[in-house]
Simulated scan of single mutants.
Amino acid sequence: MSMSDATTKPFFLLLVEDEQADAELFQELLGEVAAHTKVIHMANGQEALDYLQQLGEELPGEQPRLRPNLIVLDLNMPVMNGHAFLEHAKKDERLSDIPVLVLSTSDHADDVQRAYQAHASGYLVKPTSFQEYTEMLRLMTSYWGQVMRLPRSS
């Protein structure tokens, strides 16, 4: 498959973000640079883990739960934070091969180190301008959606 073919292939992203305004901004800016990307939003790590542990199941009144190509994870959330989510997801053999990018306001060295030690695939600091954020999302989706070879999403 050529890179141009990949731009039309659906790319499924799970966004784990507790701030609704941040989630809406992410999806709006992502839509400008990667309209082919389908986003499912969960408000905390526990919701995301529950979703992922029921992949493929057809729950009454819901679409089958699809396996994401990429998880974008905030760190500071109620119920289950990003660090705890990473620990649980990477220990689950059904989920451990899904790439997880941390997207946080924290640029603290301890947060970065801890995320990578828990097998995050990358760590991004939320940009402060719309222009930088849009460019970061363009690069992210180009890299993960077109350049990288990802595990099967079956």
Rank of each mutant, 00 (worst) to 15 (best):
M1R: 06
M3H: 10
S4K: 11
S4I: 14
T7N: 07
T7F: 12
T8M: 05
K9P: 00
F11C: 00
F11V: 02
F12D: 07
L14D: 06
L15Q: 08
V16C: 02
V16Q: 07
V16R: 01
D18L: 04
E19V: 13
D22N: 14
A23H: 10
L25E: 12
F26G: 01
F26D: 00
F26P: 00
G31C: 03
G31F: 01
E32N: 05
E32M: 07
V33S: 02
V33E: 01
H36T: 06
V39D: 01
I40N: 04
I40K: 12
M42G: 00
M42N: 04
A43P: 04
N44P: 06
N44K: 06
N44M: 09
Q46K: 11
Q46L: 11
A48L: 13
A48H: 05
Y51V: 04
Y51P: 00
Y51N: 05
L52Y: 08
Q53V: 01
Q54G: 05
G56W: 13
G56Q: 11
E57H: 09
L59N: 02
P60Q: 13
P60L: 11
E62V: 00
Q63V: 13
R65S: 08
L66W: 02
L66Y: 03
P68S: 11
N69F: 06
L70S: 09
D74W: 06
N76H: 05
M77F: 02
M77V: 03
P78L: 10
P78S: 10
V79K: 11
V79I: 15
L86R: 03
E87Y: 02
E87V: 08
A89Y: 11
D92N: 15
E93Y: 09
L95M: 03
L95D: 04
I98R: 04
P99D: 13
P99L: 06
L101D: 05
S104K: 12
T105G: 12
S106C: 07
D107W: 00
D107S: 13
H108C: 08
H108D: 15
D111L: 10
D111F: 05
V112A: 01
R114L: 11
Y116V: 09
Y116R: 05
H119Q: 11
S121A: 15
L124K: 04
L124P: 01
K126S: 02
P127F: 14
S129N: 05
F130K: 08
Q131S: 14
Y133C: 07
Y133D: 09
E135P: 00
M136W: 04
M136Y: 04
L137C: 10
L137A: 04
L139I: 09
L139Y: 01
M140P: 00
T141A: 03
S142L: 10
Y143C: 03
G145T: 13
Q146D: 11
Q146S: 06
Q146A: 05
M148F: 12
L150F: 08
P151M: 02
